[in-house]
């Protein structure tokens, strides 16, 4: 009697119990797997971030007071313009060099390609700090480059290669190169080389075949690299701080200055919010124009 009763109870699904499936659909259990990570991100990343950003509306007094600086504060203006200018110049130069490097990479023999590719990746594994200090040795007034130029008689007085915008751009382009090369290279790898051969066979010279076939086919990689590098450049801290020598202030260093040195949390938080919103807007606009998901391998 007792045994049959138990098995009957088991066979019948108890109506009062809610299974995971019935709440979240059949994929519900997979969401559970990433729940710890999501909670961690919410509690330790998004919450404090939101608190800081919120400060831009509440500190020192509630309202949009901090955002008035965007309109009438000269040093904020200078910083924003410097940031945008360095971002654009860095992105432009990085794309140019990254394109050249990628082009050589995909056209090199496989053995050479592997070695050169390693040359692109290794800097990615070295900290920006170390790379910044390395540029000191090369660029400062008594540095390697000036020494060589003076001793060979090309120049009389050392060039100012560091502690200015030039130094910042040199260091940043160097840092961004692998980030620029990777998307461009990945895209170029997928271009059917026969298309370029076909263009030649159909009467296009080397230059025309490149301009009308290879270049347009490689544009998705260039745009992807451009977005990546520009966004990185806008919020970049270590290299501008090291190589700008405190004279060329970009927004990240300016925020650090406001919060750590001047304890002006309101203005720092306002600039951080501005930076974040700008980047999100940029991504939003770009995603309207091009297929971002395809670009970053989401498809």
């Amino acid at each position: 009697m007792a045994t049959t009763g138990t098995s009957a109870a088991h066979a019948q699904k108890s109506p009062g119990r809610l299974s995971v499936n019935s709440i979240m659909g059949s994929e519900g259990r997979y969401w559970l797997l990433i729940a710890p990570a999501v909670l961690l991100m919410l509690g330790f990343y998004f919450y404090p971030l939101a608190r800081v950003l919120w400060m831009s509306f509440t500190f020192p007094s509630p309202g949009l007071g901090n955002y008035e600086d965007l309109i009438d504060n000269a040093s904020v203006h200078r910083t924003l313009i410097t940031t945008a200018r360095i971002g654009v110049i860095t992105t432009g130069l990085t794309l140019l060099f990254a394109y050249l490097i990628s082009y050589v990479l995909v056209h090199a023999k496989p053995k050479v390609e592997r070695i050169m590719f390693l040359g692109v990746l290794i800097p990615l594994w070295i900290s920006a700090l170390v790379r910044g200090f390395s540029w000191f040795i090369l660029l400062r007034r008594e540095g390697t480059i000036n020494d060589v130029l003076i001793s060979t008689g090309i120049i009389d007085t050392p060039l100012d290669l560091i502690w200015n915008e030039l130094g910042v751009v040199i260091g940043m382009v160097h840092y961004m190169l692998p980030l620029g090369v990777l998307p461009i290279y990945a895209n170029m790898r997928n271009i059917d080389t026969r298309c370029v051969a076909a263009a030649r066979g159909l009467g296009a010279s080397r230059g025309v075949a490149f301009r009308k076939v290879f270049l347009p086919l490689s544009m998705p990689g260039v745009i992807g690299a451009g977005i990546l590098v520009f966004i990185y450049s806008l919020g970049f801290y270590v290299t501008p701080a090291l190589l700008g020598g405190g004279k060329t202030l970009m927004i990240a260093e300016y925020i650090q200055l406001q919060i750590m040195d001047l304890v002006n949390w309101g203005r720092g938080a306002m600039l951080a919010t501005t930076l974040l919103v700008t980047i999100l807007l940029l991504l939003g606009v770009m995603s309207r124009i091009i297929d971002l998901r395809g670009l970053f391998g989401g498809k």
Binding site: R194, C195, V213
Partner: peptide, 10 residues
């Protein structure tokens, strides 16, 4: 020339 796989410009 007609290529193997056609090589049309995508």
């Amino acid at each position: 020339m007609v290529f193997q796989g056609y090589a049309l410009f995508p």
